[in-house]
Design a protein around this nucleic acid. Structure first.
Lengths: 209, 209
DNA sequence: GAATTATTTTACGTTTTTTGTTAAATATTA
DNA sequence: TAATATTTAACAAAAAACGTAAAATAATTC
């Protein structure tokens, strides 16, 4: 059931939500990803999001409600986006680039810390998330294996190593530090990351365009 | 003032401490780095370190005492080690490899999260740490700039980008996931990381030994 | 510009978490 | 066997986080 143009792919974030509620969700996402669910307090979310506690409790019953809301949106959007990229008419490199350029590199949607912190939360949520994560990892593994067979990737790396690096660098690509560094020049950002992923510090071969 | 053989360089960890005290320090380090100082509780340190609370309070007055102890050792050892590598008779690549192979990649001694979490702690500690961090970053920047001039590094990358990637990948090199992945095959680990840093997924040129 | 709605500030009582200590039981080491 | 180290369990005290209320400001809408 393929196809759509790759540049068409975009992950909408929570930007469609009314400001304050969106601020809360975006901030919670950031904090959850970095520190896990439990370590983050609602007071902290409020502080970081520039939202007062009253406003918070106007939109959400408690921290857990934010988690549910966040997970639901992210999973839905993430799955759609990933499938589109997967089925797109494009080379491996183009697809990887699309995933990086995308806010939240699709495949590493949830940080290890976050996943771990959910150990004793709602069963249904965890299951859903695990299924999604597994599916993503599986697909990514396939990407890398194919590319290795085709000789596009150095065959000595273990697939697990590549998978891990991809996760780490992917997560980093949307970190605050990087964002500040590149402003909104997402093109340059994803270019640099792609070059680095493919060619390391040595940089791309010189016989370019 | 230079010189010593590079392979001579090793960062002793807290291994010289009697078991339980060492366990506490090592565990605290890991947790502090990942989550910052404030978010970590002494009960958590105890749990992770397999040490009872009474034993903890036998060796340390409180969490802050652990922090001080940890910082002091790390800074001292880190500075010595870094200086040795810096002054060693070796190529840039060899030096970088040495830093990665070293437990704790010297330059990115302290995680951003940890540093940030110290915002409202003891002045003296913070100053010390900042001086050390700045020094390290400065030196690393010099490394990269030199290498770029010499053509060893793709000149299109900004030094800030390289510095950041180095920090991220360096931090990752000692993450749990990676450790589990490589067991204790530190040679293969640092080899893979070096290859990746220098040549990306494409891997090293084929005219090898 | 008046009325409505959204948001913040402050304050507070309640609940939960974390702290640090005690005493007794169990391992470990010399 | 004696001395030392460590753990378990229980606990009071302190600190942190929760969730709500009332009144004051800000922003929006009509």
């Amino acid at each position: 059931m393929p196809h759509r143009i790759l540049s068409d792919v975009k992950l909408p974030d929570f930007k469609d939500r009314p400001t304050k509620e969106g601020d809360i969700l975006r901030t919670a996402e950031k904090l959850f990803m970095q520190f896990g669910y439990k370590r983050v307090t609602v007071e902290e979310i409020c502080r970081e999001a520039n939202v007062s506690k009253v406003t918070f409790y106007k939109y959400f019953n408690n921290k857990y409600a934010v988690l549910e809301d966040y997970m639901q949106s992210r999973l839905k959007l993430g799955m759609e986006t990933f499938e589109r990229i997967r089925n797109a008419d494009a080379t491996l490199q183009e697809k990887m680039q699309a995933m990086i350029a995308m806010k939240g590199s699709a495949i590493s949607q949830f940080s290890p810390v976050f996943i771990h912190s959910l150990a004793d939360s709602d069963e249904a949520l965890i299951d859903l998330m695990n299924r999604w994560t597994d599916m993503g990892m599986q697909a990514m593994r396939q990407f890398f294996m194919d590319a290795q067979v085709k000789g596009e990737i150095y065959p000595e790396y273990s697939v697990d190593f590549l998978l891990h690096i991809w996760t780490v660098v992917g997560n980093d690509a949307r970190s605050e530090v990087i964002m500040k560094m590149y402003g909104d020049d997402m093109v340059k950002l994803s270019q640099d990351f792609m070059n680095f992923l493919f060619y390391g510090t040595t940089g791309p071969p010189q016989e370019d365009k």
